[in-house]
Write a protein that binds this DNA or RNA. Structure first.
Lengths: 334, 334
DNA sequence: CTGTTAGCGCCTTCAC
DNA sequence: GTGAAGGCGCTAACAG
């Protein structure tokens, strides 16, 4: 049909005015007669004209978009955060431009580069990025906030972190508070930074209470939880509490203990981490640490917007997950 | 520090060549001496030059981005589909530009308009958009695929649908296959198009088998499932099968029936819909229809890419969810 | 109030 | 192989 989209010039011709007037009329400037504005509107409608946002951006030197760099194969966590980012962005009138960070760091650099000149700000979530690489590839002139960075971060960037250490400490302290003294930590896989931080928090709390730490290797899967529970049942060292580094493992632990005749939480209390939807629905309901992922995303956008205005990052912002007490550490309900 | 990002002109000056040569050198054109290419590379590195993608796009008249329009407050379904879209897009070298579709249709039009000239193609997921509005606001010159549209769709757009009717039929037939004859459908909320389609599939299958349909009102919540189960227990009309329009309701139904002394699946079999993560983990594990949401997203991108090349939409594409048989309709395991 | 004129940063014919 | 010049579509001075 129509070979090419109508441009502002076509509208100008059709309305019998200059392109400047068209621009003014359509962008709601005040200095235009209502008459011309109407004529322009009509012409635009007639031609099915839609402004070319790319061109406008080039001219205005701002894009109305925020770039988001996230890992290639992201799971629930990033999906949820993304939802928050999305909500926050649209509240501020921004769109989100997504780009995948590959494990290959060359491609990652490309992914970030592909954002330059198309976004007004950047959100980088790159958990498994070689430590000092991030600083190297962030474009110097784009405001950026990095979420849970592992290594060096350019000083101009805003840092937002989930405080895994404090959260793990909180869970461990909760177990201590309800009277447990032999608390075992079922950690996540080696090489996962979160796993290490959570173990650290556990050890801190245990040490502070003058108790003895004991750590089992885990892998973030339900099967891993089952295996760990079997170990505990077999060796009978009198564990009375388990802090699993994520919910899925905890969900494996609980029924296995029960099948062996142990009462949860009376004999052994169990705590998880993440507050996945399952945690609430499982029986007995699981005590866990809730990371408000959507809120996290909203917060990230708010901080980015502030950074875009002031150009001065605030101190790193730590988000502390909330303890959610349910049946596996609480009073056993009917 | 550096006031402004370096442009191609800065690089040209620094390298002592023309902007054209810089462009050629950096874009890997063949007609450049290796010597100049090297000089240009050095200059670019020296200045920390990163090409301005927006400008390039304007000049090339293509953006390397795919626009995604999705509902304002999207849940798990869209998050998962988005993951698939993301994966597909990056496989084809595209980035994703997200835009929220508000309930307000004026703003929705704006959201779509804001894509024009920034994307090479469009994916529209707008479940609760006034039927004939979509056709009006889609830019005429941008290839688009619409997912699960409710009303009129421009002829140039590619349609991708989840076949709710056939899926509901399949589940109902499965219940019939295992010998059930009094199958009740617990439908989703009124006003939800999916609910209606699933009920339709149920009715089709029941009618085809010469059985009698019975439909209970539901609301997609666990509580709704519990309430429905209570109704069934109370009236004792001899139902031997329940097809719930989503997993959550089914998850409410099963334990309620069991508490009343009914065996699942022997006395009453139960089927859900969606295959949420819970379905597998619940006891007894739930039979359900699995919508491969990530795959759906991948498929959408593939079809969009094809459409961008050929400009000719294929026939509407129906995706059929897969029946996943688990314990609530299968052999009761130890 | 309106039109004319430069760019925004890049790519690409077209000559040399 | 390389440079000069025009243009992608739009906005923002600057004149009238």
């Amino acid at each position: 049909m129509n070979k090419r989209s109508a441009t502002i010039r076509d509208v100008a011709r059709e309305a019998g005015v200059s392109v400047a007037s068209v621009s003014r009329a359509l962008n709601g400037q005040s200095n235009v007669t209502e008459a011309t504005r109407e004529r322009v509107r009509a012409a635009a409608a007639q031609l099915g004209y839609v402004p070319h946002v790319g061109a406008r951006n080039l001219s205005l030197a701002r894009s109305g978009a925020i770039g988001v760099v996230l890992p290639d194969l992201h799971g629930e966590f990033f999906s949820e955060v993304l939802r928050g980012l999305d909500r926050g962005a649209s509240a501020h009138g921004f769109q989100l431009l997504l780009s995948n960070m590959h494990v290959d760091s060359e491609l990652s650099a490309a992914a970030i580069g592909a954002m330059n000149g198309r976004v007004d700000g950047l959100v980088v979530m790159a958990p498994h990025l070689p430590p000092n690489l991030l600083a190297a590839m962030l474009p110097p002139n784009v405001p950026a906030v990095v979420v849970n960075p592992v290594g060096e971060v350019p000083p101009a960037a805003q840092i937002v972190r989930v405080d895994n250490v404090a959260a793990a400490r909180a869970m461990t302290e909760h177990l201590i508070d309800i009277g447990k003294r032999h608390i075992v930590h079922l950690r996540g896989p080696r090489g996962n930074i979160e796993s290490d931080l959570r173990e650290r928090g556990y050890r801190d709390a245990i040490a502070a209470a003058g108790l003895t730490a004991r750590v089992l290797e885990g892998d973030f899967t339900e099967e891993g939880g089952i295996a760990a529970a079997r170990t505990l049942i077999a060796d009978r060292q009198g564990a009375d509490g388990v802090f699993a580094a994520n919910d899925l493992m905890a969900i494996g632990v609980v029924p296995t203990l029960r099948d062996a005749g142990l009462n949860v939480p009376e004999d052994i209390a169990v705590g998880g981490f993440d507050d996945t939807p399952l945690a609430r629905l499982v029986t007995p309901a699981l005590t866990t640490m809730r990371i408000e992922m959507v809120d996290l995303g909203l917060d990230v956008i708010n901080r980015l917007v502030r950074l875009m205005e002031s150009r001065e990052p605030d101190a790193p912002y730590l988000r502390l997950p909330a303890l959610v007490v349910r049946q596996t550490t609480g009073a056993a309900h009917a």
